[in-house]
Every structure is written in structure tokens, then in C-alpha cells.
């Protein structure tokens, strides 16, 4: 029955959207947890970043940017909108889509892990820059962390987040990629 459902174009489209939304929801729900083995120095993997990379790797720059925008807005809602997560995730989506992975690298798992590692460093750096900017922009004494604190913290976060995210990346990437390969990337945003 599932097969006949998949045959029809609308059925497939619906199923694809269910997979997309379901996987994003799953990532969102894992985000506030800290299971043993998923935590390094109090920092967990950046699941939304992994999702954005998995999505953007075989898609256009525009699609990557939209995914980054949507997930960034949601993450803003779940933590704090100042500084915003939109910027860092959009940059991650665009850069990943620009990489043109299939042209240079063959091996999937390793390359995805590497891309996620790089993007994690990029996103945390963008956030740190935004924090520094906020600190400079405001005159209230001590309301924001000092520059020194931000960048010491940044080193710690960027490294542990990059390591953990790249290690956990295949968990998100593999099933999603299998699914998208199976339906041969239908014409949807």
C-alpha cells in the first residue's frame, strides 16, 4: 500500500515533506537533552547545524539559505533571539551548498564529518562576533560578558561542538540522504 502511495507524485511529495518536517522536529527535540556520550565540557552536538549541512550538501545555494533561515528562526525561539542564530545557520547552508562536494570528494561519511566540523567552527565564530558586537555597542557596564571571556569561551565551545557534531553527523545525514536518493530529489524547495 505504501508503494502505491509512493507511486503517485502527490503521495511522494507529501511523504517527503513528512520526512523533512519529522526529521527537523526530531533534531529540535534532541537539542535540549544532554545524554551521556553526547556531551563534552557541557556542550552537546549542534543538531540543527548537522541538519542544515545534510540538507544543503546536494542542493542549491538558495535552498541552503532558506533551510538556514527557517531553522535559525526556530532556534531563536528556543533560546534567545539576541544574538540571532539565523545568520550563522544561513552562512552554513550557503557555504555548504557552494562547496560542490560531489566534484571534489568521493567518500561520503568522512567528507560530511569534515564539512560539519568546519561549519561548526564557522557558526560558533559568527555567534562570538555577534556577542562581541553587542558588548561593544552597549554602554551598560558588565551587562554583557567581556571580550576576553567571550573568546575564551568561544574556543571551548567551537572545539567541543565541532568534534561532537562531526561525530554525530552521520546519524542525521545517513538516513536523510538514503531517503532523498531514493526519491531522486523531486522538484520541491
Amino acid at each position: 500500500m505504501l508503494d502505491s502511495f509512493q507511486e503517485s507524485p502527490y503521495g511522494q511529495l507529501l511523504l517527503n515533506w513528512a520526512v523533512v518536517i519529522g526529521s527537523v522536529l526530531l533534531c529540535l527535540l534532541v537539542l535540549p537533552t544532554r545524554f551521556p556520550g553526547m556531551e563534552l565540557l557541557g556542550v552537546g552536538p549542534n543538531w540543527l547545524l548537522i541538519w542544515v549541512v545534510a540538507w544543503s550538501v546536494n542542493r542549491t545555494v538558495f535552498q541552503g539559505a532558506i533551510a538556514g533561515l527557517a531553522l535559525g528562526l526556530i532556534q531563536d525561539g528556543m533560546t534567545s533571539a539576541h544574538p540571532t542564530h539565523v545568520l550563522s545557520l544561513v552562512v552554513a547552508g550557503v557555504l555548504t551548498a557552494r562547496l560542490q562536494k560531489q566534484r571534489y570528494v568521493k567518500e561520503d561519511f568522512i567528507s560530511i564529518a569534515l564539512i560539519v566540523f568546519g561549519m561548526a567552527v564557522v557558526t560558533e565564530t559568527i555567534t562570538a562576533i555577534q556577542f562581541s558586537w553587542q558588548g561593544i555597542g552597549s554602554n551598560t557596564l558588565g551587562a554583557y560578558p567581556t571580550l576576553g571571556e567571550i573568546w575564551v569561551y568561544h574556543q571551548r565551545i567551537a572545539l567541543s561542538s565541532a568534534i561532537l557534531s562531526s561525530l554525530w553527523a552521520p546519524v542525521v545525514y545517513y538516513p536523510l540522504n538514503r531517503w532523498w536518493e531514493r526519491i531522486k530529489l523531486p522538484d520541491s524547495a
Binding site: G72, L73, G77, S188, A189
Partner: peptide, 27 residues
């Protein structure tokens, strides 16, 4: 395509505006 893009952004914006209410409640 344009419709879907608008829809996705509107939905994400909605989640942001109500502070991820939907997600944390499910969680």
C-alpha cells in the same frame, strides 16, 4: 515553490514568535 518557501518561512517565524512553545510542549 515560492508558495512553499513563504510557508516555511512563515511557519519558522511563527515558532520564533511564540518562543518555540510548540516544540517545548512536545518535548
Amino acid at each position: 515553490r515560492a508558495g512553499i518557501v513563504c510557508l516555511v518561512i512563515a511557519a519558522a517565524w511563527g515558532v520564533r514568535q511564540n518562543q518555540g512553545l510548540f516544540v517545548v510542549e512536545i518535548y
